[in-house]
Amino acid sequence: MAGCKSFFGYPITPQTEISAYMAKRMPKEGGVFLQAESEIAAVNMVLGAAAAGVRTMTSSSSPGISLKSEGISYIAGSDLPCVIINVQRGGPGLGGIQPSQADYWQATRALGHGDFHVLVYAPASVQEMVDLVIEAFDRADEYRMPAMLLADGMLGQMMEPVTFPEVKKNVPDKPWATNGHQGKRDHNVANSLFLSPGDLHSKVVRRFEKYKEIEQKLPKAETYKTEDADIIVTAYGAAARIARSAVNMARKEGIKAGLIRPVTLYPFPKEIIRKHTENAKEILCVEMSMGQMVEDVRLSVECKKPVRFYGKTGGLIPEPAEVFEQIKRIEKRIGGAY
């Protein structure tokens, strides 16, 4: 749909649904599906395909993403675009196979060695998985960098109605591609090695200038009933769906609760969060982890407001009623204070 020409995968639960779908779909679209011998090989096949100038992707789940991080760093260091999907499961180590959001730090901070970012999108519905894959390919090409969809086992395995957009054909020209110069230009090199410290410095600095523009232009978040909210819940992905249910429960009982759901995790929607929490009294961050995004939320409000955390990890999914309980507790506290 997004003009993706190749998919390189390796089986791991709970993302096998994506591989199975691509194995069926790609040959019909004249594309390539290849099951690699390892996550490492798969991501390096993506590196090769990206360098060749085609739209390419891979998907995996948490332990597999750790293996891919080598390749992701090289892809970022070679300024190549691609899309990587992480259907998160519980960790560390082999962890579990149930839904989790424990890879937020990895996705936004540590997807490989070196000074770099990847674009990170957090879908919260099956429809958004589709829409954000397209967005991720477009932005990855525009900024010549990897883009990740940070999903979880819940989104990876659930079924919901989806509308597929028109097949897209306008993939931009890639004059930098190593696809054979045909005698028409000097040779292109896709490379992340710069042995002179000065060269490497300026290369990385240029990349960070690009990130500055990205941080201006691309942050995206959905806000829900935040206008008059005293308590604002922040959550992404599946946790945001649970939080949304909890916000509805709170509203029903007359508690002014709202939700901010970051859609981009890098760039993090700091400004949106700051603005929409201006009149709020407390913030509650809900995650399926021990609390990772909560740090970015605190930075966004510059620690000027209390940011509480509620989460479950290991594959346990917080229930709307539990989150509602947390909201009620906060309401009780701030109700007394005002």
Binding site: L47, G53, T178
Partner: peptide
């Protein structure tokens, strides 16, 4: 080399080459 070139991570050249060849 005057042809287009890619620098692969250590050991991964056959996988990178696979990605190129399968694409083109």
């Amino acid at each position: 080399f005057n042809c287009d070139m890619i620098e692969a991570p250590h050991g991964r050249a056959p996988a990178v080459a696979t990605g190129v060849k399968r694409s083109l």
